[in-house]
Design a protein around this nucleic acid. Structure first.
Lengths: 217, 217
DNA sequence: TTTTTTTGATACAAAAATGATACAATCTGG
DNA sequence: CCAGATTGTATCATTTTTGTATCAAAAAAA
């Protein structure tokens, strides 16, 4: 599991980020000031640092130098949305820049993009008895390789990326099939059933009545 | 419950907003002039400010600077629907702009959108022995997961958003069922009973004679 | 107290949602 | 073109939800 450092003095914002990144499958550590951030960077092995510019004790620019020396990618997160700061940050080597307020989806997208650029993205994951390699499209259930169709595979990824969240049929359809969800098609149900059967997940993917399905992980 | 500050000198308009936001489950505070608004912003913890530009004593633009310093999202509400003001407001950091006269549904939609963008909407909460995760639709009573139906779930959310407030059957029906409340249907009563039973809330949700129900929390 | 109104509790049937299976249409790779 | 896999519709069975009806209990009114 990839570790991400959140250097941000405002606790609610740090929490917001932590909660969402944790949900997305990252391990998060919070540093409320510059000293703690520097300390943590030295002693633990982070795959990414989210940096607030305005930090107590040691500011974000200095911290970025630390990070770059340790070859840790950096995304700036700050209320200072001016191009001036943006340019300065990127010039100094930041990998991306996220102005507050930000949408969570945007945060996640940028984090993923930077990690991919640095080849730090995990291309495999395991949930219970199921192992998945997203690159080779190989899925093993209890050690044995199982053949998933394209739709089933994408469905699995969707569930994996949204564990413990009730996914609406509408959302599932639009994500996996792409188009608009008519409303009375049973396609989603059918594919969920097939996926459940192949993965032996009869009790892990459960129906949320009148809503859709949820993966308990 | 989220608190919203309404900075608006015209009382009827302020009232209109207050009534509708209160009904939607927000706690509202009214400031009739700029000084009061600044005062309230400093001393209470608001999740959002609705700002009239033309305010006595301190105008809306200045107030926005206060708000931004406190990291409170801002929606401008003003009769000056000209793009000039709109642009100025948004440039200075307003999160949205609502020209008078406005439709109530539009007001609510924008408020919700901004709050969601700031992730001020809480996805989980706990009341006594009951834990609720609105994303996964999971409800735990004394630590054990309990299966609620959609209606029961929405009913619970409604009570949670309106703790210690006597909810009229009419209001409950319109919120959870959506249509018009006939008047002699026992549907609301039945569902409240079922909810009480499942949550062991026989003594927490109490009947208010001839009115409806109230959640004591 | 007695009466009336309102709410609580239970049973039950209609309606809706989901699971399961079969099968036709479509696609894919020889 | 063919064989097989994939995909989605149709159908029926099963489960769950939901609201009405009914009667009992409680609260207010007379």
């Amino acid at each position: 599991m990839l570790k991400i450092l959140i250097a941000e003095d405002e606790e609610p914002i740090a929490n917001l980020i932590r909660i969402n990144l944790t949900r997305a499958g990252y391990q998060c550590v919070w540093a409320p000031d510059g000293n703690k951030a520097a300390d943590l960077m030295m002693n633990e092995n982070f795959s990414l640092v989210l940096l607030d510019i305005m930090l107590p004790e040691i500011n974000g620019y200095e911290l970025m130098e630390y990070a770059k020396r340790l070859d840790i990618p950096v995304i700036f997160i700050t209320a200072l949305g001016s191009t001036e700061h943006k340019v300065k940050g990127l010039k100094m080597g930041a990998d991306d820049y996220l102005p507050k307020p930000f949408e969570i989806v945007e945060l996640l997208a940028r984090v993923e993009a930077v990690l991919r650029r640095y080849q730090k993205v995990e291309t495999t994951f395991t949930i219970d008895n199921v192992f998945v390699d997203t690159l080779s499209h190989v899925v093993r259930v209890d050690g044995e390789e199982v053949q998933l169709t394209v739709k089933e595979f994408e469905l699995l990824l969707l569930f994996a990326r949204n564990r413990n969240i009730a996914l609406y049929r509408e959302m599932i359809y639009e994500n996996v099939w792409g188009g608009e969800y008519g409303g009375q098609s049973r396609t989603v149900d059918l594919h969920v059933q097939r996926l459940k059967k192949k993965l032996h997940w009869e009790d892990k993917i459960i129906a949320v009545y009148k809503v859709g399905y949820r993966l308990n992980a």
